[in-house]
Computed example of a mutant assay.
Amino acid sequence: MPNRGDRGGSKTRARIAEVATELFLEHGFDDVTIAQVAAAAGVSKVTVFSHFERKEDLLLDRLPDIADLVRTALRERPDGTGAVETLRRAALTLADERHVLSGLSGDIEPIMRTITASPALIARLRAFSHEIEAELATELGPAFDGDSTLAAALLVAAYRTVAVETVRRRLAGDDLADLATTHRQRLNRAFDAVEHGIGGHSGDSTQE
């Protein structure tokens, strides 16, 4: 596993991901090899795999940030704030900031097109959904007043549904400002649906 505490290692990791992304956008994900990425980045294949477990992670290198965000939001939430409301607020903050993880960043359409054109990348995203479900269920833990596994699955499915539709509409050419407004509205509806579906444990309220 990569040593993320190593500043030099972090710079190397970022450089490899940057070079790999450029190659994937230019040639397509499936047509670029790890050897080509290593050569372009000026490192060995061993070095690439010391920072990335799989080829897909070279392009999807921000996925671990989602797990970090979920953990931080839940662990640092104010007393009396439920899990659904906490994650709603985190998702809305990403949208308002046009964070890359929201799908609303202005310059990520080429990456979106590369992902949707690659079955391997789509499969990796699906696998990650299961991984983040498990992470979320663990964070909710035994103190959660309900079925934490079910709650995690519903929360991930709700966010994924909104995100997939946002990507579809971006690639269809929808106006980004209008889409950002709709994205926020759909997030609120999605989290409302989860809250009511597993209701009674958090006392969350809708944020319009």
Rank of each mutant, 00 (worst) to 15 (best):
L60G: 07
D204N: 03
V19R: 11
T149P: 00
V194W: 07
V32D: 06
E53W: 00
F128H: 15
S205H: 11
S118H: 09
V43A: 09
K55P: 02
F52Y: 15
I108C: 05
G173A: 08
E109D: 15
G28Y: 15
V32P: 02
L176K: 08
I111D: 11
D79M: 10
F49T: 00
E53K: 08
L69P: 01
T72F: 02
D79S: 14
A120W: 01
I108Q: 14
A134I: 04
R170P: 02
A40M: 07
V48R: 06
R169P: 04
L179R: 06
V70A: 10
D192R: 14
V84L: 07
A177V: 13
D178P: 00
A35K: 13
A127H: 11
R189G: 04
L136P: 04
V100L: 07
E26I: 03
A73T: 12
L69D: 13
Q185H: 09
G199P: 11
H51K: 12
E26F: 01
T116E: 13
Q185C: 03
A163N: 10
A39E: 15
A95V: 03
I16P: 10
E97M: 09
S102D: 07
A157H: 11
I111Q: 14
D79N: 10
E208K: 03
E133P: 01
T21A: 12
E53G: 12
L125F: 05
T182N: 03
V162C: 09
T138N: 12
D68L: 13
R77P: 06
D175T: 11
E53D: 15
A91M: 05
T81W: 03
T166F: 03
L171V: 13
L101E: 08
E53T: 06
D204V: 09
V167D: 00
A39L: 12
H99R: 02
P110L: 04
L104E: 07
L140V: 06
S10G: 06
T21F: 00
V37G: 07
L136S: 05
G141V: 05
H183Y: 10
I115N: 08
Q207N: 09
A153R: 14
L58M: 07
L92F: 00
A153W: 03
A137P: 08
L58G: 09
G200S: 04
G199S: 14
F24M: 03
L176C: 01
A120D: 14
P110N: 04
S129V: 00
R184C: 06
R13A: 14
K55S: 06
G146A: 06
L179K: 06
L150A: 10
F144C: 00
R184F: 05
G203M: 01
T86E: 02
D61W: 10
T93W: 05
R7A: 14
A41G: 02
I34W: 02
F49C: 00
E56G: 04
D68V: 11
V70K: 06
N188W: 03
G8T: 11
G199I: 06
I115W: 03
R184P: 02
R7W: 05
T181K: 12
T33G: 12
V19E: 03
I34C: 11
A67L: 13
T114C: 15
D31N: 15
L171P: 05
D178S: 11
P142W: 02
T93G: 04
A20Q: 07
V100G: 02
L87P: 05
I66Q: 13
D175K: 09
T182V: 11
R75E: 15
G42I: 12
V70L: 15
V70Q: 10
V167I: 14
R15N: 12
I66K: 09
R13Q: 13
I111V: 15
